[in-house]
Design a binder for these strands. Sequence first.
RNA 1: GCGCUCGUAGCUCAGCGGAUAGAGCACCGGACUUCUAAUCCGACGGUCGCAGGUUCGAAUCCUGCCGGGCGCGCCA
Length: 642
Amino acid sequence: MRVGHHLRRRARAAAAAAGSGAVGVAASRPGSAAAGAGVVGLAVLGQGHSSDAGGARCAGESRSRTWAFPACSGRGRRCGGGRSVRSCGDTGAVAGRRPYRRERGRRPRRAARRGARRGRHRATEEPRARRLRHQRRPPAGQARRPAAPRGRRGARRGAAGARGHRARVDVAGPGFLNITLAKGVLGTIAVQAVTAGAAYGRTDALAGQKLNLEFVSANPTGPVHIGGTRWAAVGDALGRLLEASGASVTREYYFNDAGAQIDRFALSLMAAAHGRPVPEDGYAGDYIVDIAEQVVAAEPGLLERDEAEQQERFRVRGVDLMFAEIKRTLADFGVVFDVYFSERTLHETGALDKAIARLRANGHVYEADGAVWLRTTDFGDDKDRPLIKSDGAPTYFAADCAYYLDKRDRGFDKVVIMLGADHAGYVGRYKALAAAVGDDPEATLEILLGQLVNLVRDGEPVRMSKRAGTVVLLEDLVEAVGADAARYALARASVDQQIDLDLDLWSRQTNDNPVFYVQYAHARISSLLRNAADLGLVLGEAADVDVAALEHQRESDLLRALGEFPRVLTAAAELRAPHRVARYLEELAGTYHRFYDSCRVLPRGDEEVTPLTTARLWLCAATATVLRNGLDVLGVTAPERM
RNA sequence: GCGCUCGUAGCUCAGCGGAUAGAGCACCGGACUUCUAAUCCGACGGUCGCAGGUUCGAAUCCUGCCGGGCGCGCCA
């Protein structure tokens, strides 16, 4: 199955659908005559020339809306066939306003080669685009990207806000418009950000959604290792992100405190307490000895009781101690869950039996070879899965069924589970079980698969084995690089990407970590604002700020970057991609540093305080606000001094 | 073998079918009597794994191949 992939695609499609009909505002290609005033790039996808705002539909396609495109006959293009809704999206209104005509011209070399190979194809590049080559110093990344999709409401707001503020509209290349904003319009962003404070960037894009977000869920048989740490960092950030977009989120940690693994854990503790060697398939490591000692200390005389009784006590106390340790290290990492859900309770409350009964009532259960099976193959799974083994014991999967039902019964619209790639095999059966209880898995269950973390030390991969005790733990990583750097490092990469974490590099040379770059920007602003306060300079009332004074190119760049923040958050939330926030912050920090480099804020010597001074103070305060809010989403601190 | 997944600069990684594919690090050359130089500016660096296909347009979507990772139990 290609579920993980499919899910991401759905998320993108959803984001695109939400943005349909919207006019995305991208950052800019600075126009030559536009110094000071904001230039905002608008994408006009395709060479559409639709005559009304909705645009014509692509023939043979029911879901896509928008732009008309002569060549789009519905053959071949598959617009909206489920995959490329986005490809048809976004631009109706603009296309209607300003049709673009393709021109002949030069095309990029590589594309030219490709075109030549295919024996067709001509020009795409427009003269103007070439002229701009030397004028343009984009604030990295964002600048070239046209049109992040926006919600309908956002689009209307944007359109209304822009009315009367446009100074000029230019065709800026194949499918792009540059809209030059009237002086001062961008400057209001600074005021908005400062005024909104911690709320700046928050939206109601996901309002009304009640989500259950499960991550980490490491069994309490050992400390959280590096793999779980990645999900702790990413999952917690995702939770904050979803909340910032208006969703109601419950962070949940499911732990297995029943079954064979826990038995092995208890037996390992016992062995350690008695000074016996670790049993076959048992757990080793110093923590086992530590916990065993604590259990014995808490229960004098335990070692003299009978074996079964001992094992039970070691299990109960061992799990408690181990789990307390897990919670503590996670808390030190800044990750706290709303619910810690015990698998054992599912057995004890009869939830498990009820779940099986329900699956049976739905007609998906059968018995074979003395075991009870769920016919998950009816719903696309590779093979049927056992619920109760032939020895009468329920499987882990049976508990999964009960747990899923429990979440749904608690009123969650959507059950989101983050899993490592090593658990990718669960996706099929999980989807199937949701279908078997009568849900639409595409709507109620979202499984986010993430690639694993590789550790490198001395240029050699560090192999991990929990039982052999050669594990790199959450706390090891935090000790080596600090919680901020650890969280940031893990959260700044896409979960689709296997990442190599070089322990030498991260521990030795922490300057390499981009988190310092971002944090430094915040510290720098904090320092500047402290100096301003020393000079008796205050921001004052929003109404008194002359935002039109901000007309330097670097100021415009910074304002535009600040204005993108709310969209960055909603897009990242919808795509389940917290790393986008980190990347945005890096760009924002860079934009600020460049502003700082060329725009003096505070008066020196006996210089006078001007409206520009105040306006720049607001701009700095706004940047600090956004850096803080963004870092907060990632669970990273925004230091005032470094 | 089957399934999933990834492959972008020397390294670590961004890149939501759209403009000339970016950042940090590394390396080279510049900028501090001035708000934190943990900064800024410049230079260098790319067959976006390979080959087809779809499209006006592909790093992005599809197919095949190559390479890495993970998974294929009445384990958890």
